[in-house]
Write a protein that binds this DNA or RNA. Structure first.
Lengths: 233, 233
DNA sequence: CCCCTGCTCGTACGCTGTACCGTGCAGCGT
DNA sequence: ACGCTGCACGGTACAGCGTACGAGCAGGGG
Protein backbone atom coordinates (compact mmCIF):
# COMPACT_ATOMS: atom_id res chain seq x y z
CA UNK A 1 0.00 0.00 0.00
CA UNK A 2 2.67 2.43 0.98
CA UNK A 3 4.87 1.32 -1.85
CA UNK A 4 5.98 4.05 -4.19
CA UNK A 5 4.00 2.41 -6.94
CA UNK A 6 1.38 5.09 -7.26
CA UNK A 7 3.36 6.89 -9.91
CA UNK A 8 3.19 4.05 -12.46
CA UNK A 9 1.42 6.31 -14.89
CA UNK A 10 1.94 10.01 -14.29
CA UNK A 11 -0.25 10.98 -17.22
CA UNK A 12 -3.27 9.57 -15.42
CA UNK A 13 -3.35 12.40 -12.98
CA UNK A 14 -3.00 15.08 -15.59
CA UNK A 15 -5.64 13.43 -17.75
CA UNK A 16 -8.04 13.26 -14.85
CA UNK A 17 -7.47 16.93 -14.10
CA UNK A 18 -8.15 17.77 -17.66
CA UNK A 19 -11.51 16.07 -17.64
CA UNK A 20 -12.87 18.84 -15.51
CA UNK A 21 -11.98 22.24 -16.86
CA UNK A 22 -10.72 23.01 -13.40
CA UNK A 23 -7.07 23.82 -12.86
CA UNK A 24 -5.07 25.16 -9.97
CA UNK A 25 -4.75 28.58 -11.57
CA UNK A 26 -8.46 28.83 -12.27
CA UNK A 27 -9.22 28.32 -8.61
CA UNK A 28 -6.58 30.80 -7.54
CA UNK A 29 -7.91 33.38 -9.96
CA UNK A 30 -11.48 32.86 -8.78
CA UNK A 31 -10.29 33.25 -5.19
CA UNK A 32 -8.53 36.47 -6.12
CA UNK A 33 -11.67 37.81 -7.77
CA UNK A 34 -13.67 37.07 -4.67
CA UNK A 35 -11.01 38.70 -2.51
CA UNK A 36 -10.93 41.81 -4.67
CA UNK A 37 -14.69 42.11 -4.75
CA UNK A 38 -15.59 41.42 -1.17
CA UNK A 39 -12.44 41.51 0.92
CA UNK A 40 -10.36 39.02 2.77
CA UNK A 41 -13.00 38.00 5.30
CA UNK A 42 -15.49 37.15 2.58
CA UNK A 43 -13.47 34.28 1.18
CA UNK A 44 -14.47 30.94 2.62
CA UNK A 45 -13.87 27.56 1.09
CA UNK A 46 -17.61 26.98 0.85
CA UNK A 47 -18.32 30.28 -0.89
CA UNK A 48 -15.49 29.81 -3.33
CA UNK A 49 -16.54 26.26 -4.15
CA UNK A 50 -20.12 27.35 -4.67
CA UNK A 51 -19.00 30.09 -7.01
CA UNK A 52 -16.97 27.56 -8.98
CA UNK A 53 -19.84 25.10 -9.04
CA UNK A 54 -17.96 22.34 -7.26
CA UNK A 55 -18.11 20.71 -3.86
CA UNK A 56 -16.24 22.29 -1.02
CA UNK A 57 -13.85 19.43 -0.49
CA UNK A 58 -12.90 19.33 -4.14
CA UNK A 59 -10.74 22.37 -3.50
CA UNK A 60 -8.61 20.32 -1.14
CA UNK A 61 -7.63 18.18 -4.07
CA UNK A 62 -5.78 21.18 -5.46
CA UNK A 63 -4.59 22.92 -2.30
CA UNK A 64 -3.54 21.34 0.94
CA UNK A 65 -5.09 24.12 3.01
CA UNK A 66 -6.74 27.48 2.81
CA UNK A 67 -3.41 29.16 3.49
CA UNK A 68 -1.89 27.48 0.48
CA UNK A 69 -4.80 28.69 -1.62
CA UNK A 70 -4.34 32.23 -0.35
CA UNK A 71 -0.67 32.06 -1.27
CA UNK A 72 -1.65 31.05 -4.77
CA UNK A 73 -4.14 33.90 -4.97
CA UNK A 74 -1.43 36.37 -4.02
CA UNK A 75 0.86 34.93 -6.67
CA UNK A 76 -1.95 35.26 -9.16
CA UNK A 77 -2.34 38.90 -8.18
CA UNK A 78 1.37 39.50 -8.53
CA UNK A 79 1.08 38.47 -12.17
CA UNK A 80 -0.69 41.77 -12.76
CA UNK A 81 2.48 43.69 -11.95
CA UNK A 82 3.44 45.49 -15.11
CA UNK A 83 6.73 47.33 -15.24
CA UNK A 84 9.27 47.89 -17.93
CA UNK A 85 12.55 49.35 -16.77
CA UNK A 86 12.67 52.89 -18.12
CA UNK A 87 15.66 55.06 -18.95
CA UNK A 88 16.45 58.03 -16.78
CA UNK A 89 18.04 58.90 -13.49
CA UNK A 90 18.07 56.62 -10.49
CA UNK A 91 15.34 58.73 -8.97
CA UNK A 92 13.11 58.59 -12.01
CA UNK A 93 13.55 54.86 -12.36
CA UNK A 94 12.83 54.06 -8.73
CA UNK A 95 9.88 56.39 -8.78
CA UNK A 96 8.43 54.59 -11.79
CA UNK A 97 8.97 51.24 -10.09
CA UNK A 98 7.31 52.29 -6.87
CA UNK A 99 4.37 53.78 -8.74
CA UNK A 100 3.89 50.47 -10.53
CA UNK A 101 3.96 48.68 -7.20
CA UNK A 102 1.46 51.11 -5.80
CA UNK A 103 -0.86 50.56 -8.74
CA UNK A 104 -0.67 46.82 -8.17
CA UNK A 105 -1.50 47.19 -4.50
CA UNK A 106 -4.34 49.54 -5.32
CA UNK A 107 -5.82 47.04 -7.73
CA UNK A 108 -5.41 44.15 -5.27
CA UNK A 109 -5.44 45.50 -1.73
CA UNK A 110 -5.56 41.98 -0.38
CA UNK A 111 -1.92 41.49 -1.28
CA UNK A 112 -0.86 43.79 1.51
CA UNK A 113 -3.26 42.28 4.00
CA UNK A 114 -2.27 38.72 3.24
CA UNK A 115 1.39 39.61 3.12
CA UNK A 116 0.98 40.82 6.67
CA UNK A 117 -0.06 37.33 7.74
CA UNK A 118 2.44 35.14 6.01
CA UNK A 119 5.73 35.91 4.26
CA UNK A 120 4.72 34.54 0.81
CA UNK A 121 7.96 33.62 -0.89
CA UNK A 122 6.71 32.93 -4.39
CA UNK A 123 8.46 33.49 -7.70
CA UNK A 124 5.79 35.91 -8.92
CA UNK A 125 6.52 38.24 -6.05
CA UNK A 126 10.21 38.28 -6.81
CA UNK A 127 9.56 39.81 -10.21
CA UNK A 128 8.85 43.00 -8.30
CA UNK A 129 12.01 42.64 -6.28
CA UNK A 130 14.00 41.98 -9.43
CA UNK A 131 13.01 45.26 -11.05
CA UNK A 132 14.07 47.34 -8.09
CA UNK A 133 17.28 45.42 -7.55
CA UNK A 134 18.34 45.93 -11.14
CA UNK A 135 17.88 49.66 -10.77
CA UNK A 136 19.85 49.79 -7.55
CA UNK A 137 22.68 47.58 -8.71
CA UNK A 138 23.06 49.53 -11.91
CA UNK A 139 23.24 52.70 -9.88
CA UNK A 140 26.34 51.35 -8.18
CA UNK A 141 25.01 50.07 -4.86
CA UNK A 142 26.80 47.00 -3.56
CA UNK A 143 24.42 44.03 -3.42
CA UNK A 144 24.01 44.02 0.35
CA UNK A 145 23.13 47.68 0.56
CA UNK A 146 20.90 47.48 -2.49
CA UNK A 147 18.92 44.82 -0.66
CA UNK A 148 18.58 47.03 2.40
CA UNK A 149 17.43 49.99 0.34
CA UNK A 150 14.92 47.84 -1.46
CA UNK A 151 13.58 46.60 1.82
CA UNK A 152 13.00 50.14 3.04
CA UNK A 153 11.06 50.94 -0.10
CA UNK A 154 9.17 47.68 0.12
CA UNK A 155 8.09 48.26 3.69
CA UNK A 156 7.02 51.80 2.80
CA UNK A 157 4.93 50.88 -0.21
CA UNK A 158 3.22 47.89 1.36
CA UNK A 159 2.81 49.68 4.65
CA UNK A 160 1.24 52.61 2.84
CA UNK A 161 -1.25 50.25 1.20
CA UNK A 162 -2.04 48.73 4.58
CA UNK A 163 -2.16 51.69 6.90
CA UNK A 164 -3.02 54.56 4.61
CA UNK A 165 -5.62 52.42 2.91
CA UNK A 166 -8.61 54.71 3.15
CA UNK A 167 -8.22 57.53 0.75
CA UNK A 168 -9.01 60.57 2.85
CA UNK A 169 -12.68 60.93 2.21
CA UNK A 170 -14.10 64.10 3.64
CA UNK A 171 -15.98 61.84 6.03
CA UNK A 172 -13.07 59.69 7.19
CA UNK A 173 -10.79 62.68 7.55
CA UNK A 174 -13.40 64.43 9.63
CA UNK A 175 -13.63 61.36 11.85
CA UNK A 176 -9.88 61.29 12.44
CA UNK A 177 -9.77 65.00 13.05
CA UNK A 178 -12.65 64.66 15.47
CA UNK A 179 -10.78 62.03 17.44
CA UNK A 180 -7.70 64.25 17.45
CA UNK A 181 -9.49 67.34 18.61
CA UNK A 182 -11.26 65.51 21.41
CA UNK A 183 -7.88 64.89 23.03
CA UNK A 184 -6.97 67.04 26.02
CA UNK A 185 -4.99 69.89 24.55
CA UNK A 186 -2.61 70.27 27.46
CA UNK A 187 -1.52 66.65 27.25
CA UNK A 188 -1.29 66.60 23.47
CA UNK A 189 -0.19 70.06 22.39
CA UNK A 190 1.70 68.99 19.29
CA UNK A 191 -0.97 66.60 18.08
CA UNK A 192 -3.77 69.10 18.45
CA UNK A 193 -1.74 71.82 16.79
CA UNK A 194 -1.11 69.63 13.77
CA UNK A 195 -4.48 67.85 13.84
CA UNK A 196 -5.38 68.95 10.35
CA UNK A 197 -2.11 67.77 8.90
CA UNK A 198 -2.24 64.45 10.72
CA UNK A 199 -5.73 63.76 9.40
CA UNK A 200 -4.53 64.58 5.90
CA UNK A 201 -1.44 62.39 6.22
CA UNK A 202 -3.33 59.19 6.96
CA UNK A 203 -4.05 58.43 3.36
CA UNK A 204 -4.07 59.42 -0.24
CA UNK A 205 -1.53 59.73 -3.03
CA UNK A 206 -0.02 62.93 -1.64
CA UNK A 207 1.26 61.09 1.42
CA UNK A 208 2.62 58.28 -0.71
CA UNK A 209 4.38 60.72 -3.00
CA UNK A 210 5.81 62.63 -0.08
CA UNK A 211 7.15 59.43 1.48
CA UNK A 212 8.76 58.35 -1.76
CA UNK A 213 10.39 61.66 -2.55
CA UNK A 214 11.69 61.87 1.00
CA UNK A 215 13.26 58.44 0.88
CA UNK A 216 14.53 58.92 -2.65
CA UNK A 217 16.37 62.04 -1.45
CA UNK A 218 18.40 59.87 0.86
CA UNK A 219 18.83 57.04 -1.62
CA UNK A 220 20.11 59.44 -4.25
CA UNK A 221 22.59 60.93 -1.82
CA UNK A 222 23.98 57.52 -0.93
CA UNK A 223 24.13 56.49 -4.56
CA UNK A 224 26.22 59.56 -5.31
CA UNK A 225 28.61 58.52 -2.58
CA UNK A 226 28.92 55.05 -4.11
CA UNK A 227 29.45 56.13 -7.68
CA UNK A 228 32.00 58.69 -6.47
CA UNK A 229 33.81 55.98 -4.53
CA UNK A 230 33.85 53.59 -7.46
CA UNK A 231 35.02 56.25 -9.92
CA UNK A 232 38.15 57.26 -8.03
CA UNK A 233 39.15 53.71 -7.23
CA UNK B 1 -39.69 51.34 27.14
CA UNK B 2 -37.45 53.36 24.92
CA UNK B 3 -37.54 56.28 27.30
CA UNK B 4 -34.19 57.52 28.46
CA UNK B 5 -35.05 56.46 31.99
CA UNK B 6 -32.46 53.73 32.28
CA UNK B 7 -29.90 56.06 33.80
CA UNK B 8 -31.95 56.83 36.94
CA UNK B 9 -29.18 55.58 39.17
CA UNK B 10 -25.76 55.54 37.57
CA UNK B 11 -24.06 54.36 40.72
CA UNK B 12 -25.91 51.07 40.53
CA UNK B 13 -23.96 49.98 37.55
CA UNK B 14 -20.62 50.84 39.06
CA UNK B 15 -21.55 49.14 42.30
CA UNK B 16 -22.57 45.99 40.51
CA UNK B 17 -19.33 46.00 38.57
CA UNK B 18 -17.41 46.36 41.76
CA UNK B 19 -19.03 43.33 43.31
CA UNK B 20 -17.09 41.22 40.93
CA UNK B 21 -13.44 42.20 40.91
CA UNK B 22 -13.78 42.46 37.14
CA UNK B 23 -13.20 45.75 35.33
CA UNK B 24 -12.87 46.71 31.72
CA UNK B 25 -9.12 47.17 32.03
CA UNK B 26 -8.62 43.82 33.71
CA UNK B 27 -10.24 42.08 30.78
CA UNK B 28 -8.24 44.07 28.26
CA UNK B 29 -5.02 43.29 30.09
CA UNK B 30 -5.85 39.58 30.24
CA UNK B 31 -6.61 39.65 26.52
CA UNK B 32 -3.28 41.32 25.87
CA UNK B 33 -1.47 38.70 27.91
CA UNK B 34 -3.11 35.95 25.92
CA UNK B 35 -2.25 37.72 22.68
CA UNK B 36 1.36 38.17 23.68
CA UNK B 37 1.70 34.58 24.80
CA UNK B 38 -0.05 32.74 22.02
CA UNK B 39 -0.65 35.11 19.15
CA UNK B 40 -3.62 36.78 17.61
CA UNK B 41 -5.35 33.63 16.40
CA UNK B 42 -5.29 32.10 19.87
CA UNK B 43 -7.57 34.69 21.39
CA UNK B 44 -11.19 33.62 21.41
CA UNK B 45 -13.92 34.93 23.61
CA UNK B 46 -14.38 31.48 25.10
CA UNK B 47 -10.72 31.00 25.92
CA UNK B 48 -10.39 34.44 27.42
CA UNK B 49 -13.51 34.00 29.54
CA UNK B 50 -12.30 30.64 30.75
CA UNK B 51 -8.97 32.13 31.73
CA UNK B 52 -10.78 34.85 33.67
CA UNK B 53 -13.07 32.35 35.31
CA UNK B 54 -16.28 33.86 33.98
CA UNK B 55 -18.89 32.89 31.44
CA UNK B 56 -18.24 33.70 27.83
CA UNK B 57 -21.15 36.06 27.44
CA UNK B 58 -20.15 38.02 30.50
CA UNK B 59 -17.48 39.67 28.39
CA UNK B 60 -20.17 41.20 26.24
CA UNK B 61 -21.30 43.16 29.25
CA UNK B 62 -18.04 45.06 29.04
CA UNK B 63 -17.40 45.14 25.30
CA UNK B 64 -19.91 45.32 22.53
CA UNK B 65 -17.91 43.02 20.29
CA UNK B 66 -14.62 41.21 19.96
CA UNK B 67 -13.28 44.04 17.82
CA UNK B 68 -13.94 46.52 20.59
CA UNK B 69 -12.11 44.24 23.00
CA UNK B 70 -9.14 44.01 20.65
CA UNK B 71 -9.06 47.79 20.43
CA UNK B 72 -8.93 47.96 24.19
CA UNK B 73 -6.13 45.39 24.27
CA UNK B 74 -4.11 47.48 21.85
CA UNK B 75 -4.69 50.56 23.98
CA UNK B 76 -3.56 48.59 27.00
CA UNK B 77 -0.40 47.62 25.14
CA UNK B 78 0.23 51.20 24.15
CA UNK B 79 0.37 52.08 27.84
CA UNK B 80 3.72 50.29 27.92
CA UNK B 81 5.25 52.92 25.67
CA UNK B 82 7.93 54.62 27.70
CA UNK B 83 9.66 57.65 26.27
CA UNK B 84 10.97 60.82 27.77
CA UNK B 85 11.94 63.47 25.30
CA UNK B 86 15.72 63.71 25.40
CA UNK B 87 18.00 66.62 24.60
CA UNK B 88 20.14 66.50 21.53
CA UNK B 89 19.94 66.98 17.80
CA UNK B 90 16.85 66.30 15.75
CA UNK B 91 18.43 63.08 14.59
CA UNK B 92 19.26 61.87 18.07
CA UNK B 93 15.82 62.67 19.35
CA UNK B 94 13.95 60.99 16.53
CA UNK B 95 16.24 58.00 16.78
CA UNK B 96 15.46 57.65 20.48
CA UNK B 97 11.75 57.93 19.76
CA UNK B 98 11.78 55.32 17.06
CA UNK B 99 13.82 52.96 19.20
CA UNK B 100 11.23 53.29 21.95
CA UNK B 101 8.50 52.53 19.44
CA UNK B 102 10.42 49.53 18.22
CA UNK B 103 10.83 48.24 21.76
CA UNK B 104 7.10 48.55 22.28
CA UNK B 105 6.33 46.64 19.10
CA UNK B 106 8.86 43.97 20.01
CA UNK B 107 7.23 43.50 23.38
CA UNK B 108 3.74 43.38 21.89
CA UNK B 109 3.92 42.21 18.29
CA UNK B 110 0.15 42.01 18.14
CA UNK B 111 -0.06 45.78 18.01
CA UNK B 112 1.25 45.77 14.48
CA UNK B 113 -0.93 42.89 13.40
CA UNK B 114 -4.10 44.35 14.84
CA UNK B 115 -3.24 47.80 13.55
CA UNK B 116 -3.18 46.25 10.11
CA UNK B 117 -6.82 45.25 10.49
CA UNK B 118 -8.41 48.33 11.95
CA UNK B 119 -7.17 51.88 12.31
CA UNK B 120 -7.41 52.05 16.14
CA UNK B 121 -7.83 55.71 16.97
CA UNK B 122 -7.39 55.61 20.72
CA UNK B 123 -5.85 58.20 23.03
CA UNK B 124 -3.14 55.83 24.23
CA UNK B 125 -1.83 55.47 20.71
CA UNK B 126 -1.61 59.21 20.27
CA UNK B 127 0.90 59.46 23.08
CA UNK B 128 3.36 57.96 20.63
CA UNK B 129 2.35 60.40 17.94
CA UNK B 130 2.65 63.28 20.37
CA UNK B 131 6.29 62.55 21.17
CA UNK B 132 7.35 62.52 17.55
CA UNK B 133 5.31 65.57 16.65
CA UNK B 134 6.87 67.61 19.42
CA UNK B 135 10.32 66.77 18.13
CA UNK B 136 9.43 67.66 14.57
CA UNK B 137 7.63 70.89 15.40
CA UNK B 138 10.46 72.05 17.63
CA UNK B 139 12.86 71.36 14.78
CA UNK B 140 10.99 73.92 12.69
CA UNK B 141 8.78 71.78 10.49
CA UNK B 142 5.45 73.35 9.66
CA UNK B 143 2.60 71.25 11.14
CA UNK B 144 1.46 69.76 7.84
CA UNK B 145 4.88 68.56 6.85
CA UNK B 146 5.66 67.35 10.36
CA UNK B 147 2.59 65.15 10.09
CA UNK B 148 3.77 63.75 6.77
CA UNK B 149 7.23 63.03 8.10
CA UNK B 150 5.78 61.33 11.14
CA UNK B 151 3.60 59.18 8.94
CA UNK B 152 6.61 58.00 6.97
CA UNK B 153 8.38 57.02 10.18
CA UNK B 154 5.23 55.41 11.52
CA UNK B 155 4.72 53.27 8.44
CA UNK B 156 8.35 52.24 8.52
CA UNK B 157 8.44 51.22 12.17
CA UNK B 158 5.13 49.37 12.15
CA UNK B 159 5.84 47.86 8.76
CA UNK B 160 9.19 46.66 10.02
CA UNK B 161 7.50 44.96 12.96
CA UNK B 162 5.03 43.33 10.59
CA UNK B 163 7.15 42.29 7.65
CA UNK B 164 10.59 41.93 9.15
CA UNK B 165 9.11 40.12 12.11
CA UNK B 166 11.27 37.02 12.12
CA UNK B 167 14.69 37.87 13.33
CA UNK B 168 16.96 36.26 10.79
CA UNK B 169 17.51 32.91 12.39
CA UNK B 170 20.10 30.85 10.60
CA UNK B 171 17.24 28.56 9.68
CA UNK B 172 14.81 31.19 8.36
CA UNK B 173 17.53 33.00 6.47
CA UNK B 174 18.57 29.74 4.87
CA UNK B 175 14.98 29.14 3.82
CA UNK B 176 14.69 32.54 2.16
CA UNK B 177 18.04 32.15 0.49
CA UNK B 178 17.01 28.72 -0.72
CA UNK B 179 13.88 30.17 -2.30
CA UNK B 180 15.95 32.90 -3.90
CA UNK B 181 18.57 30.59 -5.32
CA UNK B 182 15.99 28.24 -6.78
CA UNK B 183 14.86 31.04 -9.09
CA UNK B 184 15.97 30.85 -12.71
CA UNK B 185 19.12 32.93 -12.83
CA UNK B 186 18.57 34.30 -16.32
CA UNK B 187 15.16 35.71 -15.38
CA UNK B 188 16.27 37.04 -12.01
CA UNK B 189 19.87 38.12 -12.39
CA UNK B 190 19.78 40.93 -9.84
CA UNK B 191 17.91 38.94 -7.22
CA UNK B 192 20.20 35.96 -7.44
CA UNK B 193 23.27 38.17 -7.38
CA UNK B 194 22.11 39.83 -4.18
CA UNK B 195 20.44 36.75 -2.68
CA UNK B 196 22.57 36.83 0.43
CA UNK B 197 21.84 40.46 1.09
CA UNK B 198 18.13 40.07 0.47
CA UNK B 199 17.91 37.19 2.92
CA UNK B 200 19.75 39.30 5.48
CA UNK B 201 17.54 42.33 4.90
CA UNK B 202 14.27 40.56 5.73
CA UNK B 203 14.66 41.00 9.44
CA UNK B 204 16.71 41.96 12.41
CA UNK B 205 17.80 45.18 14.06
CA UNK B 206 20.42 45.95 11.40
CA UNK B 207 17.72 46.43 8.79
CA UNK B 208 15.67 48.57 11.12
CA UNK B 209 18.66 50.72 11.95
CA UNK B 210 19.57 51.08 8.30
CA UNK B 211 16.04 52.16 7.43
CA UNK B 212 15.96 54.72 10.20
CA UNK B 213 19.34 56.24 9.43
CA UNK B 214 18.42 56.43 5.76
CA UNK B 215 15.17 58.22 6.41
CA UNK B 216 16.69 60.44 9.06
CA UNK B 217 19.26 61.59 6.50
CA UNK B 218 16.45 63.01 4.42
CA UNK B 219 14.52 64.38 7.38
CA UNK B 220 17.58 66.19 8.65
CA UNK B 221 18.21 67.72 5.26
CA UNK B 222 14.68 69.05 5.03
CA UNK B 223 14.81 70.34 8.58
CA UNK B 224 17.92 72.31 7.73
CA UNK B 225 16.06 73.87 4.83
CA UNK B 226 13.22 74.89 7.13
CA UNK B 227 15.32 76.34 9.91
CA UNK B 228 17.36 78.24 7.31
CA UNK B 229 14.17 79.62 5.77
CA UNK B 230 12.78 80.68 9.13
CA UNK B 231 16.06 82.29 10.26
CA UNK B 232 16.43 84.66 7.30
CA UNK B 233 12.77 85.63 7.24
C1' DC C 1 -40.77 42.44 52.69
C1' DC C 2 -41.13 42.54 47.97
C1' DC C 3 -40.30 44.07 43.60
C1' DC C 4 -37.41 45.68 40.17
C1' DT C 5 -33.27 46.46 37.98
C1' DG C 6 -29.07 44.96 36.60
C1' DC C 7 -25.23 41.50 35.76
C1' DT C 8 -24.31 36.88 34.67
C1' DC C 9 -24.08 33.16 31.62
C1' DG C 10 -26.34 28.48 29.49
C1' DT C 11 -28.13 27.49 25.22
C1' DA C 12 -28.44 27.85 20.46
C1' DC C 13 -27.64 29.43 15.57
C1' DG C 14 -25.07 30.04 11.69
C1' DC C 15 -20.72 30.14 10.23
C1' DT C 16 -15.78 28.49 9.71
C1' DG C 17 -11.69 24.98 8.18
C1' DT C 18 -10.98 20.43 7.20
C1' DA C 19 -10.70 14.99 8.30
C1' DC C 20 -12.83 10.96 6.78
C1' DC C 21 -14.71 8.03 3.59
C1' DG C 22 -18.27 6.31 0.21
C1' DT C 23 -19.36 6.86 -4.74
C1' DG C 24 -18.67 6.70 -9.51
C1' DC C 25 -16.06 7.02 -13.54
C1' DA C 26 -12.07 6.89 -16.86
C1' DG C 27 -8.34 4.17 -18.47
C1' DC C 28 -5.65 0.14 -18.80
C1' DG C 29 -4.57 -4.85 -18.94
C1' DT C 30 -6.43 -9.02 -20.30
C1' DA D 1 -15.29 -6.48 -24.61
C1' DC D 2 -14.98 -6.66 -19.93
C1' DG D 3 -13.51 -6.25 -15.27
C1' DC D 4 -10.26 -4.16 -12.29
C1' DT D 5 -8.15 -0.31 -10.18
C1' DG D 6 -6.80 4.22 -8.90
C1' DC D 7 -8.33 8.66 -8.17
C1' DA D 8 -11.19 12.95 -8.38
C1' DC D 9 -15.22 14.29 -6.26
C1' DG D 10 -18.04 15.79 -2.57
C1' DG D 11 -21.53 14.55 1.42
C1' DT D 12 -21.28 14.21 6.17
C1' DA D 13 -19.39 15.26 10.48
C1' DC D 14 -16.67 17.56 14.13
C1' DA D 15 -14.58 21.04 16.71
C1' DG D 16 -14.45 25.66 17.23
C1' DC D 17 -15.80 30.49 16.30
C1' DG D 18 -18.67 35.19 17.32
C1' DT D 19 -22.68 36.47 19.33
C1' DA D 20 -28.25 36.90 19.92
C1' DC D 21 -31.55 35.61 23.22
C1' DG D 22 -33.48 35.12 27.50
C1' DA D 23 -33.67 32.73 32.09
C1' DG D 24 -31.78 33.07 36.71
C1' DC D 25 -30.42 35.50 40.43
C1' DA D 26 -28.71 38.84 43.78
C1' DG D 27 -28.83 43.48 45.97
C1' DG D 28 -30.86 47.92 46.88
C1' DG D 29 -34.99 51.09 47.12
C1' DG D 30 -39.84 51.58 48.27
Amino acid sequence: MLRAMSKVNPSREAAARERRGLARDDIARAALDLLDEEGVDALSMRRLAERLGVGTMTLYGYFRSKDELLDAAVSEAAEDFVFTLPDGSLRERLRAHQQAARRLLARHPVIAQLRARQPVVQPAMFRITEGAMQILLEAGFPPDEAARVFRVLFVQVVGDALFNRDEPTAESRRRVRGALLSLPEDEFPAVTRAAEGIAASTGGPEQFDYAMELILDAVEARAARHSAASSHQ
